[in-house]
Design a protein around this nucleic acid. Structure first.
Lengths: 146, 146
DNA sequence: AGCCATACTTACCCAAAGGAGAGTATCGCC
DNA sequence: GGCGATACTCTCCTTTGGGTAAGTATGGCT
Protein backbone atom coordinates (compact mmCIF):
# COMPACT_ATOMS: atom_id res chain seq x y z
CA UNK A 1 0.00 0.00 0.00
CA UNK A 2 2.74 2.41 0.85
CA UNK A 3 3.68 4.40 -2.20
CA UNK A 4 7.24 3.81 -3.23
CA UNK A 5 6.91 2.31 -6.65
CA UNK A 6 7.14 5.75 -8.20
CA UNK A 7 7.84 6.26 -11.82
CA UNK A 8 7.72 2.90 -13.44
CA UNK A 9 4.57 1.81 -11.68
CA UNK A 10 3.00 5.19 -12.10
CA UNK A 11 3.57 5.00 -15.80
CA UNK A 12 1.70 1.73 -15.85
CA UNK A 13 -1.04 3.23 -13.75
CA UNK A 14 -1.46 6.05 -16.19
CA UNK A 15 -1.36 3.74 -19.13
CA UNK A 16 -3.80 1.29 -17.77
CA UNK A 17 -6.84 3.41 -18.23
CA UNK A 18 -5.76 6.71 -19.70
CA UNK A 19 -8.30 7.97 -22.13
CA UNK A 20 -10.48 4.92 -22.09
CA UNK A 21 -12.00 5.85 -18.80
CA UNK A 22 -13.45 9.06 -19.99
CA UNK A 23 -15.74 8.35 -22.87
CA UNK A 24 -17.75 5.26 -22.15
CA UNK A 25 -21.50 5.33 -21.72
CA UNK A 26 -22.48 3.53 -18.57
CA UNK A 27 -25.65 2.52 -16.82
CA UNK A 28 -26.52 5.46 -14.57
CA UNK A 29 -27.66 3.05 -11.87
CA UNK A 30 -24.21 1.53 -11.79
CA UNK A 31 -22.72 4.98 -11.60
CA UNK A 32 -24.99 5.92 -8.72
CA UNK A 33 -23.99 2.79 -6.84
CA UNK A 34 -20.34 3.35 -7.57
CA UNK A 35 -20.67 6.91 -6.35
CA UNK A 36 -22.29 5.76 -3.16
CA UNK A 37 -19.60 3.17 -2.76
CA UNK A 38 -16.88 5.71 -3.32
CA UNK A 39 -18.12 7.79 -0.43
CA UNK A 40 -17.79 4.80 1.80
CA UNK A 41 -14.65 3.38 0.38
CA UNK A 42 -12.69 6.56 0.08
CA UNK A 43 -12.93 7.18 3.75
CA UNK A 44 -9.82 7.79 5.72
CA UNK A 45 -10.07 5.07 8.31
CA UNK A 46 -11.08 2.28 5.94
CA UNK A 47 -8.03 2.85 3.79
CA UNK A 48 -5.72 3.01 6.78
CA UNK A 49 -7.14 -0.18 8.24
CA UNK A 50 -6.71 -1.91 4.89
CA UNK A 51 -3.15 -0.73 4.83
CA UNK A 52 -2.53 -2.03 8.34
CA UNK A 53 -4.03 -5.42 7.59
CA UNK A 54 -2.29 -5.66 4.24
CA UNK A 55 1.02 -5.01 5.94
CA UNK A 56 0.49 -7.02 9.11
CA UNK A 57 -1.62 -9.92 7.93
CA UNK A 58 -4.10 -11.25 10.43
CA UNK A 59 -4.30 -8.91 13.39
CA UNK A 60 -6.36 -8.54 16.52
CA UNK A 61 -8.31 -5.49 17.51
CA UNK A 62 -5.76 -3.89 19.75
CA UNK A 63 -2.89 -4.50 17.29
CA UNK A 64 -4.84 -2.68 14.58
CA UNK A 65 -5.58 0.13 16.99
CA UNK A 66 -1.84 0.51 17.55
CA UNK A 67 -1.04 0.30 13.87
CA UNK A 68 -3.55 2.89 12.81
CA UNK A 69 -2.41 5.51 15.30
CA UNK A 70 -4.97 8.14 16.04
CA UNK A 71 -8.10 6.07 15.60
CA UNK A 72 -10.45 5.81 18.55
CA UNK A 73 -11.89 2.55 19.77
CA UNK A 74 -15.27 3.65 18.59
CA UNK A 75 -14.16 4.45 15.08
CA UNK A 76 -12.12 1.29 14.78
CA UNK A 77 -15.05 -0.88 15.84
CA UNK A 78 -17.32 1.02 13.49
CA UNK A 79 -14.91 0.82 10.57
CA UNK A 80 -14.26 -2.87 11.07
CA UNK A 81 -17.97 -3.65 11.28
CA UNK A 82 -18.59 -1.77 8.09
CA UNK A 83 -15.74 -3.54 6.38
CA UNK A 84 -16.97 -6.89 7.60
CA UNK A 85 -20.43 -6.14 6.30
CA UNK A 86 -19.01 -5.17 2.92
CA UNK A 87 -16.98 -8.36 2.80
CA UNK A 88 -13.62 -6.61 2.99
CA UNK A 89 -12.46 -8.32 6.17
CA UNK A 90 -13.18 -11.57 7.96
CA UNK A 91 -13.71 -11.41 11.69
CA UNK A 92 -12.76 -14.44 13.72
CA UNK A 93 -13.81 -14.65 17.34
CA UNK A 94 -11.89 -17.03 19.57
CA UNK A 95 -14.22 -17.72 22.46
CA UNK A 96 -11.61 -17.48 25.17
CA UNK A 97 -11.37 -15.34 28.24
CA UNK A 98 -10.22 -12.58 27.87
CA UNK A 99 -11.75 -12.22 24.40
CA UNK A 100 -9.56 -12.63 21.37
CA UNK A 101 -10.72 -11.44 17.94
CA UNK A 102 -8.75 -11.61 14.72
CA UNK A 103 -9.28 -9.69 11.53
CA UNK A 104 -7.89 -10.41 8.11
CA UNK A 105 -8.47 -9.01 4.64
CA UNK A 106 -10.55 -10.97 2.19
CA UNK A 107 -9.49 -11.26 -1.43
CA UNK A 108 -11.85 -8.40 -2.12
CA UNK A 109 -10.32 -6.27 0.61
CA UNK A 110 -6.90 -6.87 -0.80
CA UNK A 111 -8.18 -6.00 -4.23
CA UNK A 112 -9.50 -2.69 -3.00
CA UNK A 113 -6.16 -1.91 -1.46
CA UNK A 114 -4.51 -2.63 -4.73
CA UNK A 115 -6.98 -0.52 -6.69
CA UNK A 116 -6.41 2.32 -4.30
CA UNK A 117 -2.70 1.91 -4.58
CA UNK A 118 -2.80 3.93 -7.77
CA UNK A 119 -4.03 6.89 -5.82
CA UNK A 120 -1.33 6.45 -3.18
CA UNK A 121 1.28 6.38 -5.85
CA UNK A 122 -0.17 9.43 -7.51
CA UNK A 123 -0.34 11.27 -4.19
CA UNK A 124 3.24 10.38 -3.39
CA UNK A 125 4.38 11.53 -6.78
CA UNK A 126 2.51 14.82 -6.74
CA UNK A 127 2.90 15.92 -3.16
CA UNK A 128 5.55 18.47 -3.95
CA UNK A 129 3.72 19.74 -6.98
CA UNK A 130 0.53 20.24 -5.00
CA UNK A 131 2.31 22.05 -2.22
CA UNK A 132 3.92 24.31 -4.78
CA UNK A 133 0.55 24.97 -6.41
CA UNK A 134 -0.90 25.83 -3.03
CA UNK A 135 1.87 28.24 -2.17
CA UNK A 136 1.46 29.97 -5.49
CA UNK A 137 -2.28 30.15 -5.16
CA UNK A 138 -2.01 31.57 -1.68
CA UNK A 139 0.52 34.14 -2.81
CA UNK A 140 -1.71 35.14 -5.69
CA UNK A 141 -4.76 35.44 -3.49
CA UNK A 142 -3.34 36.98 -0.38
CA UNK A 143 -2.89 40.42 -1.76
CA UNK A 144 -5.69 41.20 -4.20
CA UNK A 145 -6.75 43.84 -1.68
CA UNK A 146 -3.95 46.07 -2.96
CA UNK B 1 -13.69 7.73 -15.49
CA UNK B 2 -16.89 5.77 -15.67
CA UNK B 3 -16.19 2.13 -14.98
CA UNK B 4 -16.94 -0.09 -17.93
CA UNK B 5 -13.57 -1.46 -18.79
CA UNK B 6 -14.23 -4.42 -16.56
CA UNK B 7 -12.18 -7.53 -16.73
CA UNK B 8 -9.31 -6.78 -18.99
CA UNK B 9 -8.56 -3.42 -17.47
CA UNK B 10 -9.13 -4.71 -14.00
CA UNK B 11 -6.63 -7.44 -14.58
CA UNK B 12 -4.11 -4.78 -15.49
CA UNK B 13 -5.09 -2.75 -12.46
CA UNK B 14 -4.49 -5.70 -10.21
CA UNK B 15 -1.28 -6.56 -11.89
CA UNK B 16 0.11 -3.10 -11.80
CA UNK B 17 0.84 -3.02 -8.13
CA UNK B 18 -0.29 -6.30 -6.63
CA UNK B 19 2.00 -7.41 -3.90
CA UNK B 20 4.58 -4.74 -4.42
CA UNK B 21 2.50 -2.16 -2.66
CA UNK B 22 2.43 -3.95 0.60
CA UNK B 23 5.93 -4.56 1.71
CA UNK B 24 7.99 -1.50 1.07
CA UNK B 25 9.45 0.56 3.87
CA UNK B 26 8.67 4.20 3.40
CA UNK B 27 9.48 7.43 5.14
CA UNK B 28 6.72 7.85 7.72
CA UNK B 29 6.68 11.58 7.06
CA UNK B 30 5.86 10.94 3.44
CA UNK B 31 3.18 8.55 4.50
CA UNK B 32 1.68 11.14 6.82
CA UNK B 33 1.61 13.67 4.04
CA UNK B 34 0.08 11.24 1.60
CA UNK B 35 -2.53 10.32 4.15
CA UNK B 36 -3.38 13.94 4.73
CA UNK B 37 -3.53 14.51 1.02
CA UNK B 38 -5.76 11.53 0.47
CA UNK B 39 -8.33 12.87 2.88
CA UNK B 40 -8.46 16.08 0.95
CA UNK B 41 -8.17 14.76 -2.54
CA UNK B 42 -10.21 11.60 -2.43
CA UNK B 43 -13.39 13.31 -1.41
CA UNK B 44 -16.65 12.56 -3.10
CA UNK B 45 -17.30 15.88 -4.78
CA UNK B 46 -13.75 16.30 -6.00
CA UNK B 47 -13.86 12.97 -7.76
CA UNK B 48 -17.23 13.70 -9.31
CA UNK B 49 -16.08 17.09 -10.54
CA UNK B 50 -12.99 15.53 -12.03
CA UNK B 51 -15.18 13.04 -13.78
CA UNK B 52 -17.41 15.77 -15.15
CA UNK B 53 -14.49 17.83 -16.41
CA UNK B 54 -12.72 14.81 -17.83
CA UNK B 55 -15.84 13.90 -19.75
CA UNK B 56 -16.96 17.36 -20.80
CA UNK B 57 -13.67 19.19 -21.28
CA UNK B 58 -13.71 22.87 -20.42
CA UNK B 59 -16.95 23.72 -18.68
CA UNK B 60 -18.48 26.69 -16.96
CA UNK B 61 -19.79 26.74 -13.43
CA UNK B 62 -23.41 26.07 -14.18
CA UNK B 63 -22.62 23.26 -16.64
CA UNK B 64 -20.60 21.49 -13.97
CA UNK B 65 -23.42 22.02 -11.50
CA UNK B 66 -25.75 20.23 -13.92
CA UNK B 67 -23.29 17.47 -14.63
CA UNK B 68 -22.61 16.65 -11.02
CA UNK B 69 -26.25 16.37 -10.03
CA UNK B 70 -26.87 16.74 -6.35
CA UNK B 71 -24.09 19.15 -5.53
CA UNK B 72 -25.08 22.47 -4.03
CA UNK B 73 -23.75 25.77 -5.30
CA UNK B 74 -21.89 26.17 -2.08
CA UNK B 75 -20.14 22.83 -2.29
CA UNK B 76 -19.33 23.28 -5.96
CA UNK B 77 -17.73 26.65 -5.36
CA UNK B 78 -15.83 25.25 -2.41
CA UNK B 79 -14.70 22.15 -4.26
CA UNK B 80 -13.55 24.10 -7.31
CA UNK B 81 -11.62 26.58 -5.18
CA UNK B 82 -9.88 23.75 -3.40
CA UNK B 83 -9.07 22.07 -6.67
CA UNK B 84 -7.77 25.29 -8.13
CA UNK B 85 -5.57 25.79 -5.11
CA UNK B 86 -4.23 22.28 -5.44
CA UNK B 87 -3.51 22.82 -9.12
CA UNK B 88 -6.06 20.29 -10.33
CA UNK B 89 -8.12 22.74 -12.35
CA UNK B 90 -7.52 26.04 -14.10
CA UNK B 91 -10.11 28.74 -13.60
CA UNK B 92 -10.57 31.23 -16.41
CA UNK B 93 -12.66 34.32 -15.79
CA UNK B 94 -14.03 36.11 -18.82
CA UNK B 95 -14.75 39.62 -17.58
CA UNK B 96 -18.10 40.02 -19.29
CA UNK B 97 -21.52 40.79 -17.97
CA UNK B 98 -23.12 38.45 -16.96
CA UNK B 99 -20.02 36.72 -15.60
CA UNK B 100 -18.56 33.79 -17.47
CA UNK B 101 -16.09 31.44 -15.81
CA UNK B 102 -14.55 28.34 -17.35
CA UNK B 103 -12.87 25.46 -15.62
CA UNK B 104 -10.66 22.81 -17.09
CA UNK B 105 -8.51 20.02 -15.70
CA UNK B 106 -4.77 20.45 -15.55
CA UNK B 107 -2.46 17.61 -16.47
CA UNK B 108 -2.28 16.86 -12.77
CA UNK B 109 -6.05 16.81 -12.44
CA UNK B 110 -6.33 14.39 -15.31
CA UNK B 111 -3.64 12.27 -13.74
CA UNK B 112 -5.55 12.05 -10.50
CA UNK B 113 -8.63 10.98 -12.39
CA UNK B 114 -6.66 8.26 -14.05
CA UNK B 115 -5.14 7.10 -10.79
CA UNK B 116 -8.54 6.97 -9.23
CA UNK B 117 -9.89 5.09 -12.20
CA UNK B 118 -8.62 1.88 -10.65
CA UNK B 119 -10.98 2.40 -7.76
CA UNK B 120 -13.90 3.08 -10.07
CA UNK B 121 -13.16 -0.08 -11.96
CA UNK B 122 -12.86 -2.03 -8.77
CA UNK B 123 -16.10 -0.59 -7.45
CA UNK B 124 -17.92 -1.40 -10.65
CA UNK B 125 -16.58 -4.92 -10.63
CA UNK B 126 -17.38 -5.65 -7.02
CA UNK B 127 -20.71 -3.93 -6.58
CA UNK B 128 -22.69 -7.12 -6.81
CA UNK B 129 -20.29 -8.95 -4.54
CA UNK B 130 -20.51 -6.22 -1.92
CA UNK B 131 -24.27 -6.15 -2.01
CA UNK B 132 -24.32 -9.90 -1.60
CA UNK B 133 -21.91 -9.67 1.33
CA UNK B 134 -24.13 -7.06 2.92
CA UNK B 135 -27.27 -9.09 2.53
CA UNK B 136 -25.58 -12.10 4.04
CA UNK B 137 -24.14 -10.08 6.89
CA UNK B 138 -27.51 -8.54 7.64
CA UNK B 139 -29.18 -11.93 7.54
CA UNK B 140 -26.57 -13.35 9.87
CA UNK B 141 -26.89 -10.47 12.30
CA UNK B 142 -30.59 -9.80 12.30
CA UNK B 143 -31.56 -12.85 14.27
CA UNK B 144 -28.88 -13.63 16.86
CA UNK B 145 -31.55 -12.79 19.43
CA UNK B 146 -33.18 -16.20 18.80
C1' DA C 1 -13.11 -10.97 47.01
C1' DG C 2 -11.37 -7.99 43.92
C1' DC C 3 -8.65 -6.70 40.00
C1' DC C 4 -6.98 -7.25 35.34
C1' DA C 5 -7.21 -7.95 30.38
C1' DT C 6 -9.95 -7.72 25.93
C1' DA C 7 -13.16 -6.23 22.81
C1' DC C 8 -16.60 -4.13 22.58
C1' DT C 9 -21.20 -1.00 23.50
C1' DT C 10 -23.61 2.95 25.00
C1' DA C 11 -24.38 7.68 26.24
C1' DC C 12 -23.16 12.29 25.94
C1' DC C 13 -21.35 16.15 23.71
C1' DC C 14 -19.03 19.30 20.60
C1' DA C 15 -17.52 20.76 16.15
C1' DA C 16 -17.69 20.48 11.39
C1' DA C 17 -20.15 19.29 7.03
C1' DG C 18 -23.25 20.68 4.16
C1' DG C 19 -28.13 22.06 2.41
C1' DA C 20 -31.49 25.99 1.61
C1' DG C 21 -32.15 30.17 0.28
C1' DA C 22 -31.46 35.04 0.12
C1' DG C 23 -28.19 38.80 -1.13
C1' DT C 24 -24.73 41.06 -4.64
C1' DA C 25 -22.77 43.25 -8.74
C1' DT C 26 -23.42 44.66 -13.57
C1' DC C 27 -25.18 45.41 -17.89
C1' DG C 28 -28.41 44.93 -21.61
C1' DC C 29 -33.09 44.48 -22.74
C1' DC C 30 -37.93 45.43 -22.65
C1' DG D 1 -36.79 51.44 -14.15
C1' DG D 2 -37.17 46.83 -13.15
C1' DC D 3 -35.88 42.18 -14.53
C1' DG D 4 -32.89 38.55 -15.82
C1' DA D 5 -28.61 36.13 -16.33
C1' DT D 6 -24.15 34.40 -13.92
C1' DA D 7 -21.22 33.18 -10.42
C1' DC D 8 -20.65 33.64 -6.48
C1' DT D 9 -21.05 34.85 -1.11
C1' DC D 10 -23.28 34.84 3.34
C1' DT D 11 -26.25 33.42 6.91
C1' DC D 12 -29.00 30.15 9.21
C1' DC D 13 -29.97 25.65 10.55
C1' DT D 14 -29.94 20.61 10.65
C1' DT D 15 -27.36 16.47 10.30
C1' DT D 16 -23.41 13.86 10.86
C1' DG D 17 -18.77 12.69 12.45
C1' DG D 18 -16.21 11.57 15.86
C1' DG D 19 -13.97 12.04 20.64
C1' DT D 20 -14.24 10.82 25.65
C1' DA D 21 -15.46 8.06 29.03
C1' DA D 22 -17.98 4.86 31.47
C1' DG D 23 -20.27 0.26 31.44
C1' DT D 24 -20.13 -5.08 30.41
C1' DA D 25 -18.85 -9.92 30.57
C1' DT D 26 -15.71 -13.58 32.40
C1' DG D 27 -12.38 -16.37 34.28
C1' DG D 28 -7.74 -16.60 36.12
C1' DC D 29 -4.55 -14.66 39.33
C1' DT D 30 -3.43 -12.88 43.87
Amino acid sequence: MTPSLTRKQLAQAKEYCAGDCYDIEVDPRVEALVTELLGRVADKWTMLVIEALATGGEMRFSRIAEAVAGISQKMLTQTLRQMERDGLVVRTVHPVIPPHVDYRLTEMGRGLGEAFCGVWVWAGEHLAQIEKARREFDARNRKPAG
